[in-house]
């Protein structure tokens, strides 16, 4: 690691102030960022740790019936505290990485990084969540903009994510055997007015909504409804662990299984 200063603000306002310093980089749980720093793939002058900001931690329901999760809330805490309100999302959180990673990693960090194989982007996009920052609110559909790309501007911090709670949802994940990130995973959420399907791990463009499946499931919410749908492999990731064709195929299987789990 290159050396850096560490700021430990205790409020969002102080964090924003610290982020104004030259070459400042926010760090939440650090479970992705610290390995990146070790590999010297990033060289911030200042790391602004968000883990001491109590106002960014916690899980609650708002008046609109949305599940609200503070940006610095760990996966372990979401797994425990969201279970009663939104079990599918709690289950997603309970399956990220491993127990020690879940005790440090946070939803804000995951959403801000937008790794193409991360779990939370699928949960957020699949739920039609709203990402709240220190500046504004961004709909998930506008927020995820490609592999490691988001709508966040320089210095902008994810303070909260608000999830509309669907009538039923399920996250089905197929593991990449080395990293234990999803090779392909599908988040299927059934709302009163339609179905959302978000896919992670598969595409060179990061997390995406699978429109054909949403339409088919909107008409007939059954595993069979997606059985005949083929996914174009053109933009899919191809690597050691699976070809583009294989990933395209898994999208169908994971989606079907997610639907089967809740129908």
């Amino acid at each position: 690691m290159y050396n850096f200063d560490v700021e430990m603000p205790s409020t969002v306002a102080d964090a924003v102030k610290a982020m104004a310093r030259d070459e400042a980089q926010p760090m939440s749980g650090g479970q992705t960022l610290i390995p990146t720093l070790k590999a010297r793939l990033a060289a911030p002058s200042v790391l602004v740790s968000l883990t001491g900001i109590d106002e960014m931690k916690g899980v609650c329901m708002d008046d609109a019936g949305r599940l609200c999760i503070g940006g610095a809330t760990t996966h372990a805490r979401v797994a425990a505290e969201a279970a009663a309100h939104y079990p599918a999302l709690a289950s997603l959180a309970a399956r990220i990485g491993d127990p020690a990673v879940r005790n440090r990693g946070t939803i804000g960090g995951s959403i801000a990084n937008n790794d193409p194989s991360a779990c939370y982007p699928a949960g957020a996009l699949g739920s039609g969540a709203t990402i709240t920052t220190n500046k504004r609110e961004i709909a998930a559909d506008d927020y995820f903009q490609g592999m490691f790309e988001t709508a966040l501007e320089e210095g902008e911090i994810v303070t909260e994510v608000k999830f509309p709670v669907p009538t039923a949802a399920h996250y089905e994940k197929f593991l990449q055997p080395a990293s234990r990130f999803p090779l392909v995973a599908a988040y299927v959420a059934k709302f009163g007015d339609g179905v959302r399907v978000a896919i992670t791990g598969a595409s060179n463009n990061g997390v995406f909504r699978w429109g054909e499946a949403e339409a088919a499931l909107g008409a007939n919410f059954a595993a069979d409804a997606v059985a005949g749908l083929a996914v174009d492999a053109t933009d899919m990731i191809s690597d050691l662990h699976g070809t583009a064709e294989y990933r395209a195929h898994l999208i169908g299987v994971m989606t079907k299984r997610a639907v089967a789990a809740i129908s």
């Binding site: 560490v6 430990m8 650090g30 479970q31 372990a76 020690a100």
Partner: peptide, 20 residues
């Protein structure tokens, strides 16, 4: 793996200053 405030964490993926 060590425990910080009772929770298992990977001590190679946490800064010492964060454990202050």
């Amino acid at each position: 793996v060590v425990h910080v405030n009772g929770e298992a964490v990977k001590s190679c993926t946490m800064l010492a200053v964060e454990a202050n």
